[in-house]
């Protein structure tokens, strides 16, 4: 009654999530917070990859890797938010397109 879920399905899911994240970063012209969310989405897709493989191959390494990624992602987000705050203090907005003082 259900298709059995294989690794291929999950890899497809994660790829879709990756593309969503990429498209979000590229097309989003307004809010930096949304970009941070897209970055998290990409990390999530990678995590799904690792966990699923770990499950299907009965190998623990992927799980361990995922925990490391989660921890690092938290630190990354903290830095990201701090930078966004700083940016806001200096410029009064958090529109990504206003970050174009340096170019050329």
């Amino acid at each position: 009654m259900f298709y059995s879920i294989t690794l291929t399905h999950i890899l497809t899911l994660s790829s879709v999530l990756l593309v969503l994240g990429l498209v979000g970063i590229v097309l989003n012209r307004r809010n930096i917070i949304a970009i941070l969310m897209c970055l998290e989405l990409i990390l999530l897709s990678a995590n799904i990859n690792l966990v699923a493989t770990s499950h299907f191959r009965a190998d623990l390494a992927g799980h361990i890797f995922t925990f490391f990624i989660l921890t690092v992602a938290a630190a990354e987000l903290a830095i990201g938010l701090a930078i966004v705050t700083l940016f806001f203090r200096n410029r009064g907005d958090i529109e990504i397109d206003s970050a174009d003082r340096m170019r050329g």
Binding site: S14, L18, I42, T53, S54, F65
Partner: peptide
């Protein structure tokens, strides 16, 4: 992020 996705694929 791309690195991690790649690692996932390799794994």
């Amino acid at each position: 992020g791309l690195l991690l996705f790649g690692v996932g694929l390799v794994y």
